[in-house]
Design a protein around this nucleic acid. Structure first.
Lengths: 188, 188
DNA sequence: CGTAGTGATTACAGAAACTGCAATCAACGT
DNA sequence: ACGTTGATTGCAGTTTCTGTAATCACTACG
């Protein structure tokens, strides 16, 4: 058991989302977040690099998992299939957190600051995929271009997943987006 | 004639690049930039939304031009060709500023902060292209996906342009990147 | 049972980014 | 001469983020 009440990061994240939705991102100070979580401002910065980062928990872990899954995919699998498989591998975790993801999306959409950080995360995902594809033997520029388009398809798929009134699974939307991608690419 | 010595933005930009290259981005304050330009910190913020923005002059104008050029392209032109034409339309301006672009790139590469802003600019370019393609009648999701891949190809092309030891033109590298894109897309 | 070690949290001070508002200034038109 | 206009400035203030050292709660060891 921890010496201090555990789950510090989680408590900070919950406090942040609460306050952001209550009074908006800009009108919430880091000190307020920390206080609601029963901590101090300095402790917040011990856990998150900056104020935005509290809205992207586990993102780096996800990117690392995708990188490793793609790199470890069977050699006969096509690049696109390998990436799609890596995306769908842990997609049920997201399905179980769909509502939280929707609340988060609302916040991101409302603030350019946060969208900018999200773009950086998507870019990091793309670069991780490019690394993994190169590790699989795919040379540049194919690796870079394929990785970029996979990141774009991932973005499209999650966007549809979050707005789907029928609540179909993330895997469904990712597959559909990759299929759209293949269809569209044939017209280029 | 200006009431004050003109070219305020330009002077601020030059001062910023000088100081950033001299002692690094983080160890340069906005006040120092303004002082070197013969102005005050407050004036800096009258011209640029934040410290990073001083490194992206005219970016919004470029994005707007691309949007309009793509939207006004002849209807029989394919989406990819329309975007490529828009990219190459003003590319000689960039050729004339190649060295400055290289110095700028060094700065961007050295600081995650600045790369993040660059990603946001690329994303804005992609969304402008998507708008223009939709205005030309291309439906989603093709518009979104095509726009994303065009932005990626643009990024690839400029990267090669800036590192080409033979100093070939930006238009050359953009065409080559789009050709690589078409070749790669056939493998998907 | 005492004590040193460990890792998280905290207190504090301070630099720097950024904003709001009112005042100032230099040119211009009338 | 005089008011208008738009850019620049002064200044106060909030907020983000960092460096440093101290404190705290628990653990392991002698």
């Amino acid at each position: 058991m921890g010496r201090w009440p555990g789950g510090t990061q989680e408590r900070l994240q919950e406090a942040a989302i609460e306050l952001f939705t209550e009074r908006g991102y800009e009108r919430t100070t880091v000190a307020e977040i920390a206080t609601r979580a029963g901590l101090t401002e300095r402790t917040f910065y011990n856990h998150f690099a900056d104020k935005r980062e509290v809205l992207f928990p586990g993102q780096d872990v996800f990117v690392a998992e995708v990188r490793e899954t793609v790199a470890a995919a069977p050699p006969e699998q096509s690049p696109l299939d390998a990436v799609l498989a890596a995306f769908t591998a842990g997609s049920d975790w997201f399905d179980r957190h769909r509502e939280a993801a929707q609340r988060r999306r609302k916040l991101l959409d409302a603030h350019a600051d946060l969208r900018e950080r999200e773009r950086a995360k998507v870019a990091a995902l793309g670069e991780a995929i490019a690394d993994a594809l190169r590790a699989r033997g795919l040379p540049d520029p194919a690796a870079t271009l394929t990785a970029s388009v996979c990141a774009a398809a991932h973005r499209l798929g999650t966007a549809r997943w979050l707005t789907d009134p029928e609540h179909r699974t993330l895997e469904h939307h990712l597959r559909a987006s990759f299929e759209d991608l293949r269809r569209t690419a044939r017209t280029w």
